[in-house]
């Protein structure tokens, strides 16, 4: 299978997205952003629909739309009368409903919509792959640069504020990076399953160590490893790539749970 260019590209894409989601997933799990991740990924459907109707680039449009939705959730979520999950629920269902209504106006887009819902990593082009790699390096670099700031905010937001740390800017930055990561990951495993790559490797890593350096390393390794094993499984058993990748990651989680319970 390695002789096929499409498979090589898919492999690189899955590894890169697995590494990036593993890194971001550390903060998603630590700061309980899992529902925000679901909200961002599902609202990307709205972005994809706008792109398909307007004839714009689906990736860029979905990314821009996801960033807007993420920041919208952030700003409205600061209203103390509302709980955060309620705000996420409003934005995410609203954006998805917008997508479904827009798509219903034009026929013949179902297939493309399916590609976004379930991922299409085997169809990734060389240009897209280079873009994905550059993007991942930039996003990963940004997160690593401000890593300890984000850790501080996770530890005690109030104290971080008292020390003059740019807490709001950091929270917004994390959401923007998360939104871009989600949209990039949608290409690989799809809207419905990208959440798994954000949560499962990081949650598995949290079972193994209490040191954040090791947690991040394990999480990134599991993300990349799930990508490789999942793609090989997908090829071998002729099953969907996105589903196979996520199943491998989830299997790793339960295996870890068993091993850690036993020890």
């Amino acid at each position: 299978m390695l002789e096929y260019v499409f498979f090589q590209r898919a492999l690189v894409a899955a590894v890169v997205v697995g590494l990036l989601c593993g890194l971001l997933g550390f903060f998603v799990v630590l700061r309980r952003l899992a529902f925000i991740g679901v909200g961002i990924s599902h609202s990307a459907v709205g972005g994809v629909a706008i792109a398909l109707l307007a004839g714009w680039s689906p990736g860029l449009t979905a990314a821009a739309f996801a960033i807007l939705v993420a920041l919208g959730m952030f700003w409205v979520g600061r209203d103390r009368r509302l709980s955060e999950d309620a705000v996420i629920g409003v934005f995410f269902s609203g954006a998805m409903a917008l997508g479904l209504v827009l798509l219903s106006m034009r026929h013949g887009f179902q297939q493309e919509l399916f590609a976004y819902l379930f991922g299409s990593v085997l169809a990734i082009s060389g240009g897209e792959l280079i873009g994905l790699c550059v993007l991942s390096v930039v996003l990963g670099g940004v997160v690593l640069t401000v890593f300890r700031e984000l850790l501080f905010i996770a530890f005690d937001e109030e104290v971080a504020r008292a020390y003059g740390r740019p807490v709001d800017a950091m929270n917004a930055l994390l959401l923007v990076v998360l939104a871009i990561t989600v949209v990039a990951g949608i290409r690989v495993v799809g809207v419905l399953l990208i959440e798994a790559l954000l949560v499962v490797p990081a949650a598995t890593a949290a079972l193994w160590t209490l040191d954040f350096r090791r947690q991040v390393a394990v999480s990134m390794g599991l993300g990349a490893g799930s990508g490789i094993l999942g793609l090989v499984g997908s090829y071998t058993f002729d099953i969907p790539a996105g589903g196979a990748i996520v199943l491998v990651a989830v299997a790793g989680f339960f295996l870890s749970l068993l091993l850690r319970r036993a020890s």
Partner: peptide, 17 residues
């Protein structure tokens, strides 16, 4: 109990500023 940082890492947060 599961916060993933050592005592030294938490103290280091005080130096970020």
């Amino acid at each position: 109990r599961t916060f993933p940082a050592s005592v030294a890492d938490v103290v280091m947060m005080g130096r970020l500023c």
